[in-house]
Design a protein around this nucleic acid. Structure first.
Length: 174
DNA sequence: GCGACAG
DNA sequence: ATCTTGTCGC
């Protein structure tokens, strides 16, 4: 939780993906697992930071937008790569930012979370505006490229996957 | 037709 | 995402 970023709850699930990844259709592939994980949380979050885009999507309906709609919870999208839109390159110093435009609309922000690394793409998902989205990500930074909640989720997911793979590939299962 | 293309 | 060699800074 803010402002210390202490972990107050966590839920991790392991599911086998059924669909191939298609740009713009990530939700169909990974949405189900995310929904299940969020359902397993003990506490309901005030906001969900999603590793993916929100409004910065060809149809303005990225993973963050859809996950937010499912639970009617505020969501913020934060991605490492651009999916749609155009922008000027942000300055090198940490904190430098540029708007992300798509079809004449400002759909996100290209933000340099730390100097020397590629910027991240922040866009509001559900029940959130761009200003608030950038503010949330900013307050979740701890000197790394990605905000702490996403790094934490990544680590937990990796742990879960390694354990699942290990368990599945053991001989004494046949 | 060519390039772009979340995870 | 996953794979994978090499380099850089705390």
């Amino acid at each position: 939780m803010l402002p210390n970023l202490d972990e107050v709850d966590a839920a991790v699930v392991a599911e086998r993906v059924r669909l191939a990844y298609l740009p713009g259709l990530l939700y169909f592939r990974e949405g189900p697992a995310i929904i299940r994980a969020l359902t397993n949380l003990s506490c309901d979050p005030d906001v969900v930071l999603v590793h993916g885009h929100g409004r910065a999507h060809p149809r303005r309906a990225g993973m963050a937008s859809l996950i937010g709609a499912v639970f009617d919870v505020p969501t913020v999208g934060c991605s490492r790569r651009l999916l749609a839109g155009r922008h000027e390159p942000p300055g090198e110093p940490q904190g430098s930012r540029e708007w992300l435009y798509l079809d004449g609309q400002t759909v996100g922000c290209v933000y340099r979370t730390r100097s020397g690394v590629k910027p991240v793409f922040i866009s509001p998902g559900h029940r959130c505006d761009l200003e608030t989205a950038v503010d949330l990500v900013t307050r979740c930074l701890r000197g790394h490229r990605l905000p702490e909640p996403l790094r934490r989720a990544h680590m937990l997911a990796g742990k879960k996957k390694r354990h699942a793979d290990h368990t599945t590939h053991r001989d004494h299962h046949r």
